[in-house]
Design a protein around this nucleic acid. Structure first.
Length: 570
DNA sequence: GATTTCACGTA
DNA sequence: CGTACGTGAAATCC
């Protein structure tokens, strides 16, 4: 089939807006597509798929974010997707989501004998009936899951066909989930978030190298010109700490064991040498303060130093890492290259490109608001009408705001210590529906019963084997936290993909997602429009994620040149 | 050489 | 005795 006919072919096959169309991408031979029981092998013209997306707006089925990554590399940004790995993670939990595994689980095949997803077994494509991707036992053949489909057009098309049927089975399973009516829309958002992740990985975060180097210089000194110079700088930093020791006494500061022994010899008995522990001993010995300073610099030097910059900051001024749409637990996005844990000191280096700005928006008090939405607790829902949710909660409980905040957070995170006990009882009286929900999650965690978040994500707890009451309590905390964190992640992703869709025409691109914060990069003249759109998108997202819940979500939105720039309001 | 532990940054 | 992630170095396992 000539690629120019793609739109016509899909039309002829009866593809309408929102219909599932499977798409597999191989760099060498092009694309494979499947829809409505038909398959195509398409020579690799990325733009043609882009045109089909605009003309027909189907929902593109992919096995994983890899396809989206290849498309993004070709400059193609699809509107919506059905990501089999994302749907699988939501349905079944856990990290593993390769095609063979997703295929087996949705068909309830026996997975006990399945090999771990290791290096693919590439022989066997031609042995026996190896041309059939499905083995007699119903599993996908390793030769196919390992990429053996990518070398011939007919196999590429066949692979797309398998993706389509897998996605259809997933859709069916999601529709049948008891008490989780939002599972299907959630998977759609999660899938499109995978497209966003591919773009985040490809685009990177704008960063000013000169500013970054200045920050590093101020924290750890100038860039060492050689390995020897690096070593002597390191030694000089160590000496600042070691000079507090009596003559003849020394230790490797990088070794927690040696450090603990050393502190013991100086009369400070500590169970570990964490910063928080050391801070309490600041006045006990002059070495402690020096040690804390050393730790701070050492962290920057080893993890976020010049090597980090060289490794992840491209010549185009973009800091790139790998993004995944969902972690293995509650479903938050993850990013590598330090994008999610960059020290605040380096944020001034995150600067918009020439003529551009960032619209920086973060959700306020997202977790208690999400709790109100997923439980429908009327009193807590009423509290979300306030910009500061903790103010009405404090009034309701008859305590001050800090106490109210600690109590609410403690209830969501399972904190049992401190003087939260009494406030907790009052919480149960004031917000019985919300608190019962958390209690029930806690009990399920302790008992090892699986849970599903509001959007249907499976929280696996059956594997948990508590051998002590403290262990059981830990699973209880994990469970109640996962229900909140997971639901918050679901709302966040609906928000993010909405922003992605609505802002694209303004030349705006999301460049960072940080659990409850969006950083959108856009031309300066569009800043106001994008900022308004981001806020509108939050209302739209909340309305689609939890229709009619009545919960108010708020965003602190600001136009800034640098990520570190102060936000208005607070 | 691979895996676990410790520590610490972010939310 | 709030959880999640990614990371780097040391410690430990095999």
């Amino acid at each position: 089939m000539a690629h120019a006919d793609l739109v016509a072919s899909l039309r002829e096959a009866g593809v309408n807006r929102g219909d599932l169309v499977a798409l597999v991408v191989t760099p060498a031979l092009g694309y494979g597509l499947a829809a409505a029981g038909r398959t195509w092998a398409v020579p690799g013209v990325a733009a043609e798929v882009g045109r089909a997306d605009e003309a027909l707006r189907p929902r593109w089925v992919t096995w994983s974010g890899q396809a989206a990554a290849r498309l993004a590399a070709d400059g193609v940004r699809l509107a919506t997707g059905w990501d089999i790995a994302a749907a699988h993670r939501l349905l079944f939990g856990g990290w593993r989501a390769d095609p063979g595994w997703a295929w087996a689980r949705i068909r309830r095949l026996d997975t006990d004998a399945m090999p771990a997803s290791g290096p693919p077994d590439l022989f066997g494509m031609d042995e026996g009936d190896g041309t059939d991707p499905v083995a007699p036992d119903g599993h996908l053949r390793p030769a196919w899951t390992g990429g053996g489909w990518a070398d011939r057009p007919d196999r590429i098309a066949r692979w797309a066909g398998l993706a389509l049927t897998t996605a259809e089975l997933q859709r069916e399973a999601l529709s049948g989930l008891e008490d989780r009516p939002m599972a299907l829309p959630t998977v759609r958002a999660e899938s499109t978030a995978e497209l966003l992740c591919a773009e985040l990985s490809a685009d990177g975060l704008p960063m000013d190298r000169a500013v970054a180097e200045r920050v590093l210089t101020s924290l750890i000194g100038p860039r060492p010109r050689s390995e020897a110079e690096a070593a002597s700088l390191r030694a000089a930093r160590d000496a600042e700490v070691l000079r507090h020791l009596p003559a003849g006494v020394t230790a490797d500061l990088r070794s927690p064991v040696q450090l603990r022994t050393l502190l013991g010899r100086l009369g400070m008995d500590v169970p570990d040498t964490r910063a928080e522990r050391l801070r309490a001993l600041r006045d006990a010995h002059p070495i402690v303060g020096a040690l804390l300073e050393w730790r701070k610099a050492e962290r920057i030097a080893t993890t976020y130093g010049y090597a980090w910059l060289d490794q992840h900051l491209g010549a185009d001024g973009r800091l790139r890492g790998a993004w995944t749409g969902s972690d293995g637990a509650a479903g938050r996005m993850t990013a590598s290259a330090g994008l999610h844990n960059m020290p605040a000191a380096l944020r001034p280096a995150v600067v918009a490109a020439e003529g551009h700005v960032f619209v920086r928006a973060d959700l306020g008090q997202i977790e208690p608001r999400v709790l109100a939405a997923v439980t429908g607790d009327p009193a807590l829902t009423a509290a979300t009408r306030d910009d500061d949710l903790y103010a009405p909660v404090a009034a309701q409980l008859g305590v001050d705001r800090p106490t109210a905040k600690v109590a609410v957070l403690g209830a969501m995170y399972g904190q049992t210590t401190g003087h939260g006990a009494q406030a907790l009882r009052r919480l149960s009286t004031a917000y019985p529906v919300a608190m019962a929900y958390l209690d029930s999650a806690d009990r399920a965690g302790q008992a090892g019963r699986d849970l599903r978040t509001y959007g249907g994500r499976l929280i696996v707890l059956t594997a948990a084997e508590p051998r002590s009451s403290s262990r059981a309590a830990a699973y209880g905390r994990y469970a109640r936290n996962a229900m909140i964190q997971g639901a918050a992640a679901e709302l966040f992703k609906v928000w993010a993909v909405t922003v992605r869709a609505r802002c694209a025409s303004l030349g705006a691109r999301i460049v960072l997602c940080l659990h409850d914060e969006l950083l959108v990069h856009c031309p300066g003249e569009q800043a106001q429009a994008v900022a308004r759109l981001v806020d509108d998108c939050l209302r739209e997202a909340a309305g689609r994620w939890a229709p009619g819940c009545g919960v108010r979500f708020i965003s602190d939105t600001a136009i800034v040149r640098s990520w570190s720039d102060a936000k208005h309001g607070t």
